[in-house]
Design a protein around this nucleic acid. Structure first.
Lengths: 226, 226
DNA sequence: CGCGGTCTTGAGGTATCTCAATTGGAGTGG
DNA sequence: CCACTCCAATTGAGATACCTCAAGACCGCG
């Protein structure tokens, strides 16, 4: 149960331990990532958590046979890097240039971090669990149309911005990412986009910008069994 | 899900606990559930967390169109009831008669709970996240055989017990539960069981007991792309 | 022994995958 | 500014795995 304290441990928590100040006071460390750059790899020792400031990240895991899974996309405000047994359980890459705030969290396992920070982590973890549960609903027995419609609705709720009567948002990840996220092939994703376009549910601008034209239609597509 | 909070939960934190504040001292409240009984509903205010002592629980969510999803099965040692915004995000039912320990966690959101408990919750939540990520790997683009084989391997690792050279375990949930968990139909689950039986990967005893005969074969089935 | 439910098995339809060709857009160099 | 290249997205055609619907088998139980 006890984890031997690594040498860096003391330094890492020193600011909090000594001053007893709110961890947010500590000068925040940040890191910038170019498109496609890697924040951490699966199996890396997890010494930090990260909060996305700008850009979009993706969490990826590979199967033994090389198949790729996108576990999720991380938008500004999201927390990434939750460890399991002190290690990262997935790769994390920048979909577009991104910047993250680094939260040193040495000793997460040992329970010696600042309670306030711990509280934040717990809340973020609970949020993450809930969000993953939502995703389960999307992944299970659903048609490609339902999956993509659900995904787009969630995007709209999360990052959508008004454009006249409509909502629009960027979807800067390649089709393969969306496919690997929804459990489909890129071809099927593409076909489904075309289908949604044909039924006037949405418009595509430069393929990476989505304009939702008929939210009601999309909603019914996301829910209906056929 | 396969969250491995140890059953000796209270003891685990004992070394750190200093005073009579130790929540373990409070007579642990438990609750017994008959088969099919409900522990909590989606949307209920989440005033407690639960640790499974005996039996098996299932977490369930329904879609707007009535489709059912099994988000996970909870075995002894697992923690259930993680709230989102103070509410439960899924229904929880007993697959077989079960008993749970109730952890009063009022004020989880407010951070007013015992730090050690909070630490434990965080660890349990991290386990949960990791376990859900594993499940994502199973749900995505995989054949029915791969899904069921993966599921059975995870069951074997978690609850399997030796039987001669083999491993066996109970799988007391109806086929529909497994289907709703893996994103398949009960018919396909049944057919896939038959298939695995025919290729001598496993035996079924009373349909609710599984005997793994050829672990290697199952492993390759779980991983291979075809 | 008959009833009700679940599990299994069967036959056919269909949505998605696979493989392959075409289009389209961004970046480069003439 | 235009051609060229390269890679991703789209579209097409055929194969197939899974779903749907339906019938039959297998319990557990009154």
């Amino acid at each position: 149960m006890y984890v031997s304290t690594p040498p860096e441990f003391g330094q890492a928590i020193a600011p909090h331990a000594r001053s007893g100040q709110d961890f947010r006071r500590a000068a925040p460390q940040t890191r910038s990532l170019a498109e496609g750059a890697n924040l951490f790899h699966e199996g890396d020792a997890a010494r930090s958590l990260y909060i996305v400031n700008t850009g979009i990240l993706r969490l990826i895991r590979y199967q033994e046979n090389g198949q790729r899974r996108v576990l999720g996309f991380c938008y500004p405000g999201d927390t990434v890097g939750f460890p399991l047994d002190g290690r990262h359980a997935a790769d994390c890459e920048a979909v577009v240039p991104a910047q993250v705030t680094i939260l040193k969290s040495y000793g997460l396992q040992a329970g010696s971090i600042h309670p306030r920070l711990q509280q934040k982590l717990l809340e973020a973890a609970l949020q993450e669990i809930s969000s993953m549960q939502d995703h389960f609903m999307t992944l299970g027995r659903k048609s490609a149309t339902q999956k993509l419609a659900s995904f787009l609705m969630r995007c709209a709720d999360r990052i959508g911005r008004p454009l006249g009567d409509c909502t629009h948002f960027d979807l800067p990840m390649p089709r393969r990412d969306i496919a690997d996220y929804l459990g489909l092939t890129p071809e099927t994703v593409s076909r489904t986009f075309t289908q949604l376009r044909n039924m006037k549910a949405l418009m595509l601008d430069h393929i990476y910008t989505v304009v939702l034209l008929d939210r009601t239609l999309l909603e019914s597509l996301a829910e209906d069994a056929d």
